[in-house]
């Protein structure tokens, strides 16, 4: 198993522990990772200029295509954006033509047929739950964990194909593999509030607060995320509200017996 790892912009700059723990966990599970000179996935540009956001994604997809690799990203927004770009390139042939010309000028191929996966789908479907379970040496037995899904991987399911958008199970299954007990909480598939954190901070905080309250009142002892944006949204607030927060590969890493330091803890 070999992937081009797509970290995006936020992980190296704001959540470096996510990169550390992802590499540590995937290394342990024998998933090969290769670094390519990726740039912005185009997600932040999508609001203003769809074409530019598609070309940004296509540029990255083309790099993966050139290297003959599938993409693995730990970021749900990058994941969604790369998938969306693939969709838009099919939907708008005229845009696809312009993008193709642009990429050709850069010496890159047209990026059709590149496989894009999120960290969680790779773990659950490619590595396999049983395989992971066989590596668990320090199960987190008894820990009640609320898994936060993250919108841009889950929806729109027709584009992302991540899991059943109404009743997903992939994240709870991955929590259960660590020996912890997944909590089914009311707001688990709802928005974290991050996308409006800059334009409407109050609204963003209310949404995030509602989520953390829901997790707490459902008896959760730990909130886990698998996206840097969601993680950043919760980071301070969860601490204030008394709910410990972790990135999923940190939880899994502990169960796999990887030392905390290597997980950025």
């Amino acid at each position: 198993m070999n992937y081009a790892i797509f970290l995006g912009c936020k992980i190296p700059a704001m959540v470096p522990a996510y990169e550390d723990s992802t590499r540590a966990v995937l290394g342990k599970l024998k998933v090969g990772l290769q670094d390519l000179p990726f740039t912005c996935c185009g997600y932040p540009t999508r609001s203003l200029d769809l074409d530019a956001s598609v070309v940004a994604a296509a540029h990255n997809l083309a790099l993966a295509k050139q290297a003959g690799l599938a993409i693995l990203t730990p970021c749900k927004c990058c994941f969604g954006q790369l998938r969306h770009a693939q969709r838009f390139l099919e939907e708008y042939p005229e845009l696809a033509e312009r993008v193709s010309a642009f990429l050709q000028h850069e010496g890159l191929p047209f990026p059709n047929g590149v496989k894009v996966d999120h960290l969680l789908t790779v773990l659950s479907k490619e590595v396999g739950l049983e395989n992971i379970r066989s590596h668990v040496t320090a199960p987190r037995t008894g820990l009640k964990v609320a898994a936060h899904y993250g919108c841009h991987a889950l929806r729109p399911s027709a584009v992302t194909g991540f899991d059943n958008p109404m009743a997903p199970t992939i994240f709870e299954d991955l929590v259960a593999v660590t020996g912890a007990t997944p909590v089914i909480w009311p707001r688990r598939i709802d928005c974290c509030g991050e996308p409006v954190s800059a334009s409407n901070p109050d609204l963003s905080e209310r949404i995030a607060r509602g989520k953390i309250t829901s997790a707490l009142e459902s008896g959760s002892e730990l909130l886990v995320t698998a996206c840097p944006y969601c993680h950043m949204r919760f980071e301070e607030l969860a601490k204030d509200m008394g709910l410990p927060l972790m990135l999923y590969p940190q939880l899994l890493g502990q169960a796999l017996g990887i030392p905390d330091k290597a997980l950025g803890l």
């Binding site: 919108c151 929806r155 729109p156 109404m166 928005c191 996308p195």
Partner: peptide, 9 residues
């Protein structure tokens, strides 16, 4: 809009 895609889904 938080672009959570609940409406679309």
């Amino acid at each position: 809009c938080a672009t959570c895609y609940q409406c679309q889904e």
